[in-house]
Amino acid sequence: MTRKQQRIFAIVLVLFGAGLAVGLSLLALKENVTYFYYPSDIAEEKKEIPRNRDFRMGGLVVDGSVEKSGEVTRFVITDTVHTTSVTYTGILPDLFREGQGVIATGRLNEESVFVARTLLAKHDENYMPPEVARALEKAKVKIE
């Protein structure tokens, strides 16, 4: 092997080694890297849901499920397969509305209601002017 080939070999080896190390670490930390759980993760018990510490739940706020009484907001989130009931005490983020993606931090109580300590609104990857959004909404209603 020439010196140049040795150096190429070294680069490939280093990249492979670093990639493998990082890949295996991320695989081992999979549960920790996951920022939030979906209602299906609880219902299907596929993933280990922490019982005695706070974790995050994410999903879409179900249409018509939002009930407000003073500072307390009750609503249901869905991942379109399963649902979880959530109660949250505090100021709602600006983007909070029915149909919106949200992420709540808290824990499940005995009645399997998720008691949220903080609430974040999730933004999706679609950007459009208000007129276009209204036109899309109208078209959707027509189809239904």
Partner: peptide
């Protein structure tokens, strides 16, 4: 992973044909 940050609007194979961002 599930992240708070939204997925790509433009730079993914499924999004190249139908960008998630309005033309304007």
């Amino acid at each position: 992973w599930n992240t708070l940050h939204q997925p790509a609007s433009l730079t993914s194979f499924s999004r190249m044909a139908a960008p998630g961002i309005h033309h304007d």
